[in-house]
Amino acid sequence: MYNGIIFVLLFLMFCVQEFIPRLGPDASYAIILLYPVWFMCSAVTLTYPAMLSLAFFAGLLWDLRYSVMVGVGEHVTPDIAFGMVKGQAAFGMGIVFFALMGNMMHGVRPTYLKNRLGFPILLTGAGVLGFLLLDFLFLTFKRGSFSFPPILGREIFATALISMAFSPVFYFILHWLHKSFGYRTRYLGYGG
């Protein structure tokens, strides 16, 4: 039951994400990424197979919404005309990124179980930062040339920082859900 609620709330967060506009220049045009933050916070509480399922679901939704298919069709694009065909962002990489974040968060379960939330919260911020950097660097790798303007670095850092600020609220909600559904997060050592 608890796992089902987590999946439903993740989808709800995916819809909410759609309503969040980009912040202004004072906040370096940051985006509040509630969706990945909710995923990471819930990943700590789930068992390993459930976390993997959640990562697959989260990554698939992310890719379906945000991966763009360019050049699929029969038209002669300028790329072809100028011999400059470059790779697309691979569909499915979102799932890999979410699985990486989930595995990372799963590693701090002992800290979470001791109610020491400082490290999981910091790791959530680091996770968002890593997710955005990986996503952008993978795109860069596929396109073959490196470019990383400073404005982008500021945007990524601000996004991670502001998004991280929401994780304590999410941990509180998860704690409340634990109580409501009688769910017990257990740590079973290396195999848990």
Binding site: L52, F56, G92
Partner: peptide, 15 residues
């Protein structure tokens, strides 16, 4: 679970 996840991921990549 990990094997199932990887298989599903491979299937997605080969679409």
């Amino acid at each position: 679970a990990l094997l199932v996840f990887v298989s599903a991921l491979v299937w997605i990549f080969f679409l």
